[in-house]
Design a protein around this nucleic acid. Structure first.
Length: 348
DNA sequence: AAGACGGGGCA
DNA sequence: TGCCCAGTCTT
């Protein structure tokens, strides 16, 4: 017999008592659910809160999102990370407007065809916005299921995810699939937590949870170790105008890859010699700008900044001069350069 | 199946 | 520091 069969009733009851009040829950239209789910991918609720409302104020409809200029979109996403999510969001908005005549897709399979919508997100939108009985299996759900069933399979394996998804499909309440999925995630986020001891005293599953009953919560879930990240030594050039208006040089990053399409202070690996010369930049004066560090999931940047003054007309093709207002309003600069933000602002 | 892809919070 | 987060896409 399936131990999970005991879960839905106490879980839903617990959820109705303990659900957090979240902005995307107040009016769960398909558009609201979709945008919030994309923002929440690999991102904590607390981090999304500061972005969601501002995004909705700027782009209240799927049509507005489909039409917005990419730089404005990226500015709204600046600091949230995984920037392809934003670009895929707009791609999908155009799919909806052009391909589905503005009518939001309402089946799991059709939702899957939208850019940036995978198994989890398709399940979340289908169940929460349209009441379709499909699971939404994220990291929280994998952890909760592993513990309740005492399953020690590696949850990073696709095969494990498929099996747990199928088990959930058997028990998901047909009259409340959206609440059930949200309740599973809410439980994982607030009670059956990943770091440190879970709060089993307040868990609706404590009477039948295998991990709790066998005191194995610390051993579950099982997850394969990640590969170590590599380090990159980089020189960052904070380039200012020598005369006239106070401005700083920015250039756009390549359209693909890390931080694609965002703006940055020109920088290069330390292993590469004479980047200024290569760019055709002729310093009038230079000064040490301190060090900075930024940790990505798979790379660690160790940065040394150099302050450089050049003539205004010495700016390489394609780069731009930004004054303080433009830097704040128009250009999405990733948080990787946050260590130098203060230094730059002081000089603008 | 593995790697790329951000950034932050917490033990 | 290392882990993990309402994952998806590419190779």
């Amino acid at each position: 017999m399936n131990i999970l069969e005991q879960l839905p009733i106490p879980l839903l009851s617990w959820y109705r008592e303990n659900a957090r009040t979240l902005p995307w829950r107040s009016a769960p239209t398909p558009y609201h659910v979709w945008v919030s789910e994309i923002m929440l991918q690999q991102t904590r609720v607390a981090a999304v809160l500061g972005y969601y409302q501002r995004f909705m104020d700027a782009l209240p409809t799927v049509e507005a999102l489909a039409r917005v200029e990419e730089d404005v979109l990226m500015k709204l996403w600046q600091g949230l990370g995984y920037y392809n999510r934003a670009r895929n969001l707009q791609k999908a908005a155009r799919q909806i407007v052009d391909g589905f005549a503005g009518e939001f897709p309402r089946t799991y399979e059709t939702l899957l065809s939208l850019a940036g919508v995978g198994e989890y997100t398709a399940g979340a939108i289908a169940s929460i916005a349209f009441g379709v009985s499909v699971p939404a299996v994220d990291g929280n759900v994998l952890r909760v299921v592993s513990r309740i069933t005492g399953d020690d399979s590696d949850i990073s394996r696709p095969e494990t995810k498929v099996r747990m998804r199928e088990a959930l499909l058997q028990i998901i309440p047909r009259d409340a699939p959206g609440d059930f999925n949200q309740a599973m995630m809410e439980l994982g986020a607030t009670v059956c937590v990943p770091n440190g001891a879970p709060n089993c005293d307040n868990c609706p599953a404590k009477s039948f949870c295998a991990a709790f009953l066998q005191e194995k919560t610390a051993q579950l879930p099982v997850k394969a170790p990640k590969r170590a990240r590599r380090t990159e030594e980089r020189r960052v050039f904070l380039i200012f105008t020598q005369n006239g208006e106070k401005r700083v040089a920015l250039r756009r990053r390549p359209a693909r890859g890390l931080l694609a399409g965002l703006w940055e202070y020109p920088n290069e690996l330390k292993a590469v010699d004479h980047p200024l010369e290569t760019w055709g930049v002729h310093p009038v004066g230079t000064q040490y700008g301190g060090v900075g560090k930024h940790i990505f999931t798979h790379i660690e940047w160790h940065m040394t900044a150099q302050i450089v003054y050049i003539e205004e007309n010495d700016l390489p093709k394609g780069w731009i001069w930004a004054d303080r207002a433009a830097l704040r309003r128009d250009y999405a600069v990733p948080n990787a350069f946050q260590s130098f933000a203060h230094l730059v602002e002081e000089r603008l």
